[in-house]
Write a protein that binds this DNA or RNA. Structure first.
Lengths: 188, 188
DNA sequence: TTATCACTATACCTTTCGGTATATTTACAT
DNA sequence: ATGTAAATATACCGAAAGGTATAGTGATAA
């Protein structure tokens, strides 16, 4: 493994476990068995490393989302596919997804939030577009796309948070239950 | 205003705006027009200040929740009351609620998460107990209390996040819509 | 009047922070 | 073989981090 990738991997582990601000550049260098100037050679600054990390991994998340949405037989199946895709990505990229969840809930002035915000916006837009397309089959959701996108995103991240802390297993059954509750509420 | 309360107020503002780790003790002291030894006299450490801050404000949140739950005519009305109570508390204690949201989504190893976790657990338990009580009237939610509590908590915080960033106004109407979606899903 | 105690300031501690100036090594193209 | 550029290390920078030793204040109780 080359130095650059080692740095990316180690920093992701540390950011996910301790948070961005709580992790020093020195600590990253030590764990990656390199020295600070090497890190600064590749990334320019701590913020540069942060940006590189997000740019490297987020595309995969976005691709998973977009691909899942194309399975549009009906809304329920699509929602299941979306949640499944996101879950799978999260479970295969635990540290990165942990970091995304932390960063997107951090203070708006913090560097992690600033860095991740545009990517989250992109995912939300993707979900909103999905609801817009499906409006053809469900005429009663006019103007609610944005709310649906946001609550769906929140619900999915809620479940993934549980799964990442081993309080839940996201399998076919629990995914269907989640989507069913989202679609039909707790009364049915 | 005495020094102790000024410190509590100023530090809450800074923690909510910048995050806990990004805020220095020196900065708090400066903004509160006191010196560091004064801060350390009252709180012992930065962590001590953090704990004091949470202990001071969280009781109000918990009381709001508990009171709202007592209005148990039917489940929908109760859920509306709960969301309204939480929204009202959040809007009246914006900085504190912002801080709670940041802390509860932070890394498990971080001090803010460690400090807030037991309080969040208490609120979740309260919601779970609410669903358990109402099981009498809705026999079909056996064993789902915990999931309901968690998704309700997530949904409410999702909406409050939007409201705190002025992307939404939480009034009677939007509260009902949120509860309605939680209860009946997006299809009705 | 004096002893006590809560409170506050000056000045300092050590450690770590993000970042860099400089030199050297490595690899590769000419 | 040699020039060049990427990659890496040593040693350092000033600033800020969290925290404290010490010395006062002011009020209050004996």
């Amino acid at each position: 493994m080359n130095s650059k990738n080692t740095i990316l991997q180690v920093s992701l582990e540390l950011f996910a476990a301790q948070g961005y601000e709580a992790t020093g550049v020195q600590e990253i260098a030590k764990r990656a068995n390199i020295t600070k100037p090497t890190l600064y050679h590749f990334f320019g600054s701590k913020r540069g490393l942060l940006d590189a990390l997000i740019a490297l991994h987020y595309q995969g998340l976005q691709d998973s989302l977009s691909t899942a949405i194309r399975y549009d037989k009906d809304l329920t199946k699509t929602l299941c596919a979306v949640l499944k895709a996101l879950s799978t990505f999260a479970m295969q990229n635990k540290d990165f997804y942990r970091f995304v969840l932390i960063a997107s809930h951090a203070s708006p002035q913090s560097e992690p939030f600033e860095a991740i915000a545009p990517y989250i916006g992109q995912s939300l837009q993707t979900l909103e577009d999905m609801f817009k397309k499906i409006v053809v089959h469900h005429g009663n959701m006019r103007g609610r796309h944005q709310r649906y996108a946001f609550t769906l995103w929140g619900m999915m991240n809620n479940y993934i948070t549980l799964a990442l802390s081993n309080q839940l297993t996201l399998n076919e059954e629990s995914i269907f239950l989640a989507v069913h509750q989202f679609s039909h509420g707790i009364y049915s």
